[in-house]
Design a protein around this nucleic acid. Structure first.
Lengths: 104, 104
DNA sequence: TTATCATATGAACAATCATTCATATGTTTA
DNA sequence: TAAACATATGAATGATTGTTCATATGATAA
C-alpha cells in the first residue's frame, strides 16, 4: 500500500488549502457569471450588476473574493473601477470544467 | 454596455450550475487529497482512509460525491471496490489550479 | 466645501456542507 | 447457512458562505 511514498508526493498542507480555496471561488455560479462577463472585456461594478440583474452590493462582495484570489485585477478610472480577468489560468480552468461537464 | 450581446455568450443556467457544482467538488481539501492519492494508482476505500488518516465513513461519503460528478470511477474486486481517476480533465484542472496559486 | 455618484463593507440570516456515529448492504469464507 | 469484512448511507451537528440591508469610503462636479 506504501502510504509513505504516496504521502510524500502529496502537496503541503497549506498548498492543499490554497488549492481548495481557489476552486471554492469557482464553485459559485454568480462568480462564474462574473468571470464570463469579464472574459468579453473589462467592466465596472455597476455595469456587471446591471448585466447580471443583481444588486451592486452582491456583485461587489463577490468581486472582492475574486480579487483576493487573484482571478481578477482592477484599473481605476475616475469614480469607476474597471475589473478584468487576471490571467489565462482563469480561462483554461473554466474551459476544462466546461469540457468535463459537456462530455458523454 | 451591450448587455444583450454579453448575455448571449453566457452559458445556459443549467450549465452554469453544473460548472459551479463541478468546481465545488474540487473546493474541499479532503477531496483534493483523495484525488492526489488516486493520481498515483487506483486504491480501495479502506486504503485511502488509512493513507489519509481519516475514518472509512468520511472517505466513503466524499468518494460518493467524486463519483456522482464523474471525477472517479470504480472497479469491483471481491469485497473491495477500487477507485481511480475518471479521466485526464481531473489532472489538468488540478495542475492549472496548482500553477495559479504557485505564481508570483 | 458640499452634494452626488461609484464602490466597499459590516452585521445578520438562511442555506449548504463535511464529519461523526450508528447502522445497513453486500461479498466472501468457514 | 452464519460470521467476518468492506463499503455505503441516514440523521445530527457545527462550521462556512451568499445575499440583503444599511452605511461607510472615496472621487468628482458644482
Amino acid at each position: 500500500m506504501d502510504k509513505d511514498r504516496i504521502m510524500s508526493n502529496m502537496p503541503e498542507e497549506t498548498e492543499l488549502y490554497d488549492l481548495a480555496e481557489l476552486f471554492k471561488v469557482f464553485g459559485d455560479s454568480t462568480r462564474i457569471r462574473i468571470l464570463y462577463v469579464l472574459s468579453e472585456k473589462e467592466e465596472c461594478v455597476g455595469n456587471i450588476a446591471q448585466i447580471l440583474n443583481m444588486t451592486q452590493s452582491a456583485i461587489s462582495h463577490q468581486l472582492r473574493i475574486l480579487k483576493q484570489n487573484k482571478l481578477v485585477k482592477i484599473r481605476r478610472e475616475g469614480k469607476q473601477i474597471y475589473y478584468s480577468l487576471a490571467d489565462e489560468h482563469v480561462r483554461v480552468i473554466l474551459a476544462m470544467g466546461k469540457e468535463h461537464i459537456e462530455e458523454d
